[in-house]
Every structure is written in C-alpha cells, then in structure tokens.
Write a protein that binds this DNA or RNA. Structure first.
Lengths: 342, 342
DNA sequence: TCACCTTGATAAAACGTTTTAGCAAATATA
DNA sequence: TATATTTGCTAAAACGTTTTATCAAGGTGA
C-alpha cells in the first residue's frame, strides 16, 4: 500500500509553496510562471498526486457528493433508479452515495444522519411509504441543512421537492383499460395497508370503476405486501372470486399471482386477465408477457436530478417543487378482450 | 434548511472549551466534572449537534466508510451483493459507498479514484472481467493506500485479497449433472470472450466432458454477452444443433435462451434441457423453474467483509488472502432425465 | 510552611486543503 | 531618478474536529 502524497510534499519537491501548487493544479487564475506551472504539473503527475477530497470538502464546504436512500436496493425498480441516478450524477461531476434502508423509518433516519454527517451536498429520499412511526424522520428532514428531493413517494405534508409518478393515475389507467376490454368484475391486489403508493393506486382503481358506474366491491379488493411470497399467499382468495381480471399493483405482486395461477392450472389471459405495474422486469420472459403500467426509473432520475441541481445552484424558489409524471400503459398479452358479456 | 451546529457553538453555549465538549461527547477518559458533563450532553442534544464526519475523518485519518464498485447495479446479482454487503458493513458501523461502473476498466478506475479521494477506508472491487485495457486500473490497485478486496472476480495476477466462487467448479458441476442425467450432446452458451468468469465456467464445462470421454466439440460452444438480448440472438444457432441440453453460464443468458425457445415453440425440458447459473432470479416465476448453479451473494458479502475487517484491523498477513467458495447445484425442473439414448 | 498530588479544564497543534491579502523584485512610466 | 505598475510568489487564516501537554487552584501530608 503506497502512501498518500500531499500538496505539501509536492510543494516541497518543487521548491514552491503549497499555495502555488494548489493554485496551479486547480487552474485558478494566478500569476505563476509558465515554467513553474509545468514543473508543478509534472511533479504532481509523477507522484500520482490526488487531492484529498476530505480536506477539500472541509474548506470548500461542499463535497460534490449526493446521497440516495432507497427502501431496498435488491428490488429491480430501485436498483434501476439508483443506476440511472448515479449515471446522471456522475455526468455532472457528483458522486452518489447509494444506501438501502430496509424500509423502516428508523433505518431511514439513521442513514439520513450518516449521509448528512458525511457531508453530502444533497439527498434523494425514497422514503415514507411504510407506516412505521416517522415523526423523528419527518422532523429531521424538515430541519435538514442540505437540499432534499423526495423521489417516487413522499412523507405526507412535508414541504420538500417531490418527483414522482402519478400513482392514482396509474391505478386508474390500468383499471380503465380492463373496463375498455370488456371486463366488469375486476379484482385488485394492492399494498394499501403499508404503502402510500399502494393506496393511491387503489384510489385510481376505484375512480375508474365509479366513473363507469361499476360497483366498488370490497370483496374484490385484496391486500398484499410488495413481495412475491406475500402476493402468492393472497392470490388464492383472489382466484376464489368471480373476477375476470385483476389489477396487480406491482410486478412482484403480479409475479406472486402468476405463480399461484400457474400452480392451479389457470391460464392467463384465458382464465383471468392481469394488468401489472412497474414493468421493471420487462426484459424477463414471462408467460405471457405482462400488460402493465410502466414508470421509467430513468425519467424519475432525470427529473430528480434536475430538482436537486436547481437547489444546489441556489435557484429553485422558496416553495417546494412538485413534479408529477404520467405513467404509461404498455399493452402486451396478459389481458383478454371480452366480447359483451355479463 | 437549518444551519449546521458545530462543536465550537456548543462550547460557547455551555461556556467551556471545544476540547472539553469533544472529550465528553466522545466519552473519552478525562476529568470533567459530572455536572458539566451533563450540561454538555444536554446542550448538544437540544441543539441536535451531530459531529462533522468530514472534519473528524481529516484528523482521525479514517472515515468508517467503505467503497464498492460493481459493474452494474441493475443486475440482480450485484444488487443483491451490494445489499448484503451494505447490511454487513452497517452492522460494524461502516457506511458503504455503492457505485456502479458500467463495466469498463476506465470507469472502474475513475470510480476507484473518486472513492479513494473521498477517504474511504477500504474498497470492495467487482472488476476485471471485461477485456478492456486494464493496465492503468491494475497499476492503481497495486498502489492503493487502502486495503482492497476483489469480489466475485479478479484482475489476474494482482496480489490482493480475493473472495469468489469457484466458477470452473460451477461449470463442471452443471455439465456433470447433465451428463449424469444421460445427456451426451451438451451445448454451452457462455461469455468467454469478454469475461474471466465465463472462461472459467467454460473450462469447467470442458473438464466435465473430458472426464467422461465425451468429445469437446467447438460447434457446441456458443458465445453470448451477459445480457438477455445478446443471448436471445445467439440462441438460434444453439437450437440448430443436435444438442439435447444447454449449459447457460448466467441467468440472463438462460432467459434469452428461454425467450427464443418459447418463440420457436420448443419446450423445456421436453425439447431441450437447460442448466443456468446464479439462480439470482430464483423467486421469479419461470416456466419451468430453472435448475441452476447457485452462488449466494450473501455468503460472498460475508467473506468479503471478513477479509476487509482483518485488513482494517491491521491483522491479515503480508500475503493476500484468497477465499474460494463452492457453488451449489439447485435442481429444479429444466432438465430432462434421458434414459439410455444416443 | 513546603512539597506534592488531584481535580477540572484548556491552549494549541494537527489533519490537507483553498483562498486572500500582501510582499519583494523586476519592469515600465514619467 | 523617482514613482507606478506588473510579475511571481507566499504567509496565514480558515474549515471542524481530536488529542496531548500543560496549567491553575485546591487539597493533603509532613
């Protein structure tokens, strides 16, 4: 392990002061002779000098580092979001600290503190979905010494930039599409108990039904966590209904459902139609390919970075910005068109 | 946005010196009266004082932060590795800087420099798989001022701690299993051109064939990148052979293959058997469930952290440690047992 | 009273940078 | 020649901590 070489050492070797070396290496406008400039650069290169960002951050009061907290990096959607966001950050010379919390507000808080204390210039937060006690987190976010952008979901009632897809609209679009295909008995399988996004998707589902005068039947609304096994468990009850279609509020939920369907020897869309959400597993082979509401994580990342960028530049008004993106319906093969029936 | 509160400010408010405050807040053995201790803690709490890690790192010369470079955080396997590793690091009070390079040696190098410069105490590297020009990277790694642990794969010939699964053994196990199930014409679809791991898996495949006296037939060895579309492209040629089974050297490759098979109306394992690799998509519904060589990312993470931990503690010998883990064959439904045939 | 300890606390240096004000020498201007 | 300007460079403060050596005051024992 080589030793780290410092400005001072370079200065020593060149026979000039640290100030001069710093000035030259940072291309600051200053009056150092051409020959000394060259010398400094050469010596720095020869010694593999790399400035110590820690020291630099301390004095510059910025680290050109941003932080991201996601509930679970192992989820495809968040991984993809993290990937896109990191790429985008790097384009602007920012490094991105990706962290994964496990989803509890306590962990979120802990991570947030870690990030702040490590001097990130701003944080992207994908938090506030689970209904754990988030008072401390809320408190912390509202007193943050750095800009924060909430992505994909939000802690309700917090004045903070937000970038997210319209989950209610997504639920509406999915259900509306099923209705248009002739379905009348439409079940849904959503994470409404523990997830704000799930609640909103459910609300969209109900709006679509109401809009065309279909009854909202509690017996058709089923609850599932965002994991495949949870949906798998919940699916049996779904299949016991007379529904001809199901709105599954996430890909994982759809996958759990599919698994169960498959085991029961039911076919999609022959026996039952399915609209899924996220479409983050789009390139994976599903049998059949899933019609789904798509939310492109890249778009989310782009807008989130945009907000952050403005804040960092000191632009961006006093009031929080709120970006709402429209999801897209991707039609594939999991929905059967019903010819007038029921 | 609240202002950051410093040690000095706390000291001011308490009416003591910064040294005293620091000493107390860090529970250093020192002689400060009980009442002042209490006072300091109270004031610090009231003001939400959080020590500035940047400043702290500068003087302590450690940041309790580690770095991770993966080729692609959007891949399930790496996401899972990153998740496990982060959890493990946090248990020991380390934060983990997760970065995703895109896979080129240049990007790896850039990220590595960023991490070092930002003062991480050590780095986990998942690099060296693609055959881009890695001389600069190699150079950098060998002169690193901090410990590095190469995970899952390695830059060949570099004296550095390594933790990885035995890829050759994996290839061998997969092929051996197919042979035991009665297959004789076994194709493989591997990323040997651009990936060391792919090469090793291929070597294992060949060893298994040799061992039982089966011919190594170049016409049965196919090349694919680690992406679904690449495998999808390559699959047509595979299916044009007389192979009764295919060893796919990653889940993504298997998925591309499946997609093609499906489109061609071929069934698995009826028409052709498949053994996949990673099993990282284990919980997803595949039709049928894939028999695969599994490498648990959690195990990888655990050992990698172990190595790092030793280095950080100054233990760990002069020589690099090399941990080789055995993958496991998970039998599911994608292989047909052939009764004496051919 | 003197010497010595103990207690409570602090001053100051250090970490590796950036940045600003200013100095000395060389050169230009009058 | 005297003055002003330019050129080349640096000293020193600052960032927010940690840590060590030291200090003053009060107490103890002889």
């Amino acid at each position: 392990m080589a030793n780290k070489v410092t400005l001072k050492q370079i200065a020593q070797e060149v026979g000039l002061s640290p100030s001069s070396v710093s000035l030259v290496l940072n291309n600051r406008p200053c009056r150092i002779s051409e020959e000394n400039r060259k010398l400094i650069k050469e010596v720095a290169a020869r010694n593999h000098y790399v400035p110590n960002q820690i020291a630099r951050s301390l004095v510059m009061r910025e680290s050109r580092t941003l932080g991201l907290i996601v509930p679970n990096i192992e989820s495809r959607f968040f991984a993809s979001l993290a990937g896109s966001l990191e790429k985008r950050c790097r384009e602007d010379g920012y490094a991105l600290f990706i962290t994964s919390s496990g989803g509890s507000a306590d962990d979120d808080l802990e991570l947030l503190r870690q990030l702040v204390t490590r001097g990130v210039d701003g944080v992207f937060l994908v938090v506030g979905d689970e209904f754990s006690d988030d008072r401390a987190l809320r408190e912390e976010v509202s007193h943050l010494p750095i800009p924060a952008v909430m992505v994909d979901r939000a802690i309700e009632g917090l004045e903070c930039d937000k970038v997210m897809f319209d989950h209610e609209m997504g639920g509406y679009m999915a259900t509306r599409y099923l209705i248009e295909q002739g379905h009348r008995r439409i079940a849904c399988l959503v994470n409404a108990r523990r997830s704000n996004t799930g609640r909103k998707r459910l609300a969209g589902y109900e709006r679509a039904l109401r809009e065309v005068g279909l009854p909202i039947d509690a017996r058709l609304e089923f609850e599932s966590e965002y994991y495949i096994p949870s949906a798998y468990e919940a699916s049996e009850a779904v299949l016991a209904t007379d529904a001809t279609a199901v709105f599954a509020s996430s890909d994982n939920i759809a996958l759990g459902l599919l698994k169960r369907l498959h085991e029961m020897g039911k076919s999609i869309p022959g026996d039952i139609s399915v609209v899924s959400y996220d479409n983050s597993a789009a390139d994976v082979l599903f049998e059949p390919a899933l019609t789904a509401i798509e939310q492109d994580p890249g778009v989310l990342a782009e807008h989130a970075f945009g907000c952050m960028s403005k804040r960092l530049a000191g632009k961006g008004g006093r009031r929080a910005e709120e970006v709402v993106l429209e999801p897209v319906l991707i039609v594939k093969d999991s929905v059967l068109e019903l010819t007038k029936h029921n």
